[in-house]
Amino acid sequence: MKLAMAAVLVAACSFIGYCRVYALRARISALQAFETDIAQLGLMMEYQALPVGELADRLRGALPAAFWQAFRAGVAQGSAREAWRQALYAEAPYGLRASDMEQLCGFGAVLGQGGRAAQKNNVDYALSNIKRLRETLQLEQAKKGGLYGTLGLLSGLAAAILIW
């Protein structure tokens, strides 16, 4: 019985540790996907100068197609700001936190409004913010990624020894 409980504790604590590592990795990859697609959208705005809904149709980037489809459908109904917000909350990849979502909503707030120069500034600003956040998280992942897993395993082992 004790052996089974110890095994369960070790497994559960290790699982929690690895979940934390996975969440960090997923958050970084979600931010990377937005970074890639927003950069691509910015270039398309500059060189193709098509309406944002049509650009969303043509964009084959790192974000799931469902995200851009939701955005496209939203733009056909109302403002680009609302369409972006709705797509973000409905179809954004797993791993983003509320603070990330807020920051990404900021990009949508002026999407489509103003001239090409204003759009370029908006894209550049969003990209610099996402890049800064991603780099911080990557640094954290490099430093603590292994640590979370090991800590989970060790705390599981410690708990198992305590109940033994």
Binding site: M45, L50, P51, V52, E54, V75, G112, G114
Partner: peptide, 12 residues
């Protein structure tokens, strides 16, 4: 904005 299909930059 509706006439510009939510994309003022494309109709500058």
């Amino acid at each position: 904005m509706r006439l510009c299909r939510q994309s003022a930059y494309a109709y500058e």
